[in-house]
Design a protein around this nucleic acid. Structure first.
Lengths: 209, 209
DNA sequence: GATTCTCCATAGCGATCGATACGAAACCTG
DNA sequence: CAGGTTTCGTATCGATCGCTATGGAGAATC
């Protein structure tokens, strides 16, 4: 992968790159890529511009590293839900309820960085918008994969379209992200998730939240 | 309301404000409020900066007028669906299927301006983000009102939470807006809408699209 | 025709954008 | 210690941002 910490001499860093990246991630999460200025990043990261550029190359690279960190630290619920040894319906339930929690964590920006990061962008930032779109597409593909696995295991009726349903689930999660950004509480998002679950075929009865 | 066209003398305008506003609206729709620069607006509207500022005050006012125009010209399907003399389920069906069409019109930016316009914003543009949030909240409130009316008419079971369901429907529409932005076709959005409809109580059978 | 009003086009305003040049400082290896 | 290397802090860089000052042009009113 990458050369992790190999200084062959030279002045040591006076800051923690991990903490700095976290601060940048939260700022991008809150304001999006383009609306987050270097001045804001400077203050939130507690660094001078040369420190930022020496450690993270440029703003675009910093944002991509923030995306990767977000993917690793903030949305583990998704991978867990998709890989847990449970029924397909239960997997989707965990996915949506996990999103309800992750999108409305106190002290964190509402919604999902992959949605808020750059839904609309200037022509110069088109590459960033495309990168986020790729993340969203990958999420949808992961859902489709889980649904297909469910069909293969006889867990999900053969009649339903895996791609269509994955697009629905991914769409609901994106919608939850916006609702969270508009101030929806965990409970409200949970109710939304439960409602969305009712569209699933093979309707077993559900229990209280 | 406003003084509509009352020049008591003076040099006449050399451009059509309506067409200029349309061009601005589409640009904001595509790139969002902050990422749309005056240079882009100049080119798209075919105007010089003083022409823009004389006719529309400033960028923020121009954006608000673009929002109003969008509301009037692009999303009439919503009001139609909510006020049509049909069952509640049919009203919601028309709402979602109308969104599928409106969010993926050829030659138009994908999704809804109320979502793409400023989901994330810099602190300076917070007022704009709040305005868009207000539009989204109003849409949700309109849905809730329609659902409440359905309950009052015995059209919708008393048990379901009107607010919760409205949040679900609004959330699905927001999700459709993002899926449309990611390139979803009309058919794909229609399938998403049909899937979302299955979560509605009082499940009458549906017919082909 | 003189006055008055509004809009036109050119040019450029101060502020902020992302990104750097520069030289001193702090660590390693000899 | 000298030599090499990397990061440090300070002070900006050119480009672009939203916006406007200025003076002339074109229309209604008197």
């Amino acid at each position: 992968m990458e050369n992790l910490e190999k200084p062959r001499g030279g002045r040591p860093r006076a800051f923690d790159p991990g903490r700095a990246l976290d601060a940048a991630m939260h700022l991008f999460w809150e304001h999006g890529y383009e609306a987050t200025s270097l001045a804001m990043l400077r203050e939130a990261m507690g660094l001078t511009p040369p420190q930022i550029y020496n450690a993270f190359t440029d703003k675009e690279t910093l944002f991509r590293k923030a995306l990767a960190r977000y993917h690793e630290t903030e949305i583990g619920f998704a991978l867990e839900a998709m890989s847990a040894p449970v029924s397909t319906r239960e997997a989707i339930r965990r996915l949506l309820l996990g999103a309800a929690v992750a999108y409305s964590r106190p002290g964190k920006p509402g919604g999902c960085l992959f949605v808020s990061g750059a839904l609309a962008a200037s022509p110069q930032a088109q590459a960033i918008a495309d990168e986020l779109k790729a993340y969203r597409k990958a999420s949808e593909a992961a859902i489709a994969e889980r649904l297909a696995k469910g069909q293969a295991m006889g867990d999900l009726p053969e009649g339903v379209s895996v791609e269509g349903f994955a697009k629905y689930i991914a769409g609901v999660m994106n919608g939850m992200s916006i609702q969270a950004r508009d101030g929806a509480s965990v409970e409200e998002l949970r109710i939304l998730a439960q409602t969305a679950l009712a569209a699933l075929p093979d309707e077993g009865q559900k229990q209280g939240a």
